[in-house]
Design a protein around this nucleic acid. Structure first.
Length: 377
DNA sequence: AAAACGGGGAC
DNA sequence: GTCCCAGTTTT
């Protein structure tokens, strides 16, 4: 049943205690969320931030976040815009919304603390199998093997595991392997040691096998091709979208910004220069005029272009054309947006924007002076 | 099972 | 340019 031979498995179990854990004790990075004793709240925040996000990116975000929201009660009581401002640029904004929701559950049901029970942790918004196991083991010492991208890669190489890593059958084999190899007395350290090994030594490309404490046991290395594991399917090409955005100036030279729906879709809850996807048959001016009519009930005159911003998302790329505009008719309605505000360029910092819209902001700030309606119309 | 969901660093 | 990261949720 097991893809791994019994004697190899036994050797791996021994090597976890004799080699992996000592290696980790020696090489563990001093990261801000690793202060002992572990604060379950800090473990939680760090684990959510670290999802699909590298350690070096997370560190400054984690420090700002913990300073502003030091406990679940602080987080639960904070306005969502403040939370999003601290998440701005980190991506996957649903994580921030779920964190905020979960903090409110903690205050309501668990005296403002994370429950010391994996079954209860698993019910919190944003906690899937990985995060539940990570928090249960790291913060509370429960024997739960956390399976993340690092651990899957390390274990797939150690055993030269065949099969597509995205298939559930392969995932089950890896979970079973991780469960089997978990040192019962040191579940948190085992999980972290695998992850540290994956991050520092057993990297996706150019793994440093000569520095690996488990190199002698590695089937992929024995086969001479560690990078062949884990097996993954080929990526599809990303679709490309052309998007228009309006920098609408009023007579006081304030600029209209709109808030995206907080509960659905891309960049949820962030603020933006309103606009949308151009249809094949449209001009850019026609696209922007139509989008603002549909989203906010405004009739626009679209003026000259400010900038074109290129940006890549996880599942498509965009070319964002920002044009100056002014309102010919109407006042901003929330037909397909959550909120709006008229602000001057120096007030952009108070609102969370996406990376692409920061390109527009930067272009505006690079102008000789803040834009005025009469400069363009 | 597949798609949606960001952004950045390494190569 | 490509890959992929301390994944979760929805369809």
């Amino acid at each position: 049943m097991s893809p791994t031979q019994p004697d190899h498995l036994a050797a791996l179990r021994l090597a976890v205690r004799r080699r992996l854990l000592p290696w980790f004790a020696r090489h563990a990075r001093d990261l801000p969320w690793r202060q002992e004793p572990r604060d379950p709240y800090a473990v939680w925040i760090s684990e959510i931030m670290l999802q699909q996000t590298r350690v070096d990116t997370v560190i400054p975000y984690f420090q700002r976040f913990m300073k502003r929201f030091p406990t679940p009660a602080h987080l639960a009581a904070a306005p969502m815009r403040d939370v999003l401002k601290h998440w701005e640029g980190l991506g996957y904004y649903a994580r921030a919304h779920r964190l905020h929701q979960a903090a409110q559950v903690l205050v309501r049901d668990y005296q403002g603390r994370l429950p010391d029970d994996p079954a209860l942790l698993a019910k919190l918004p944003g906690l899937g199998p990985y995060a539940t196991a990570a928090i249960a083991s790291l913060a509370f010492g429960h024997p739960r093997a956390a399976l993340d991208g690092n651990i899957m890669r390390v274990l797939a190489r150690l055993t030269a595991l065949p099969g597509d890593i995205t298939r559930s059958a392969t995932r089950r084999k890896l979970q079973h392997l991780a469960d089997t190899l978990l040192a019962p007395k040191h579940p948190g350290a085992t999980n972290e040691a695998w992850m540290e090994l994956g991050a520092l030594v057993c990297t996706p490309r150019n793994p440093r096998c000569s520095a690996c404490p488990l190199a002698r046991l590695c089937k992929a290395r024995a086969a001479g091709r560690p990078e062949a594991f884990p097996q993954k399917p080929k990526k599809k090409k990303l679709p490309h979208k052309v998007v228009g955005a309006a920098v609408i100036l009023n007579r006081s030279n304030q600029i209209l910004i709109a808030q995206r729906h907080p509960d659905k879709g891309m960049l949820n809850g962030l603020w933006e220069f309103p606009g949308g996807k151009r249809r094949d048959t449209e001009t850019m001016a026609g696209c922007i005029a139509r989008e603002l009519r549909e989203e906010m009930g405004l009739t626009l005159e679209v003026g000259p272009r400010l900038v074109i911003v290129h940006h890549a998302y996880s599942h498509f790329t965009i070319e964002l054309h920002a044009h100056f505009a002014r309102i010919l008719k109407g006042r901003p309605l929330h037909l397909d947006c959550a909120d709006h505000a008229w602000v001057t360029p120096d007030q952009f910092d108070a609102y969370p924007f996406s990376k692409a819209d920061h390109g527009i902001i930067n272009a505006m700030r690079a102008l000789p002076r803040p834009p005025r309606q009469r400069d363009y119309f």
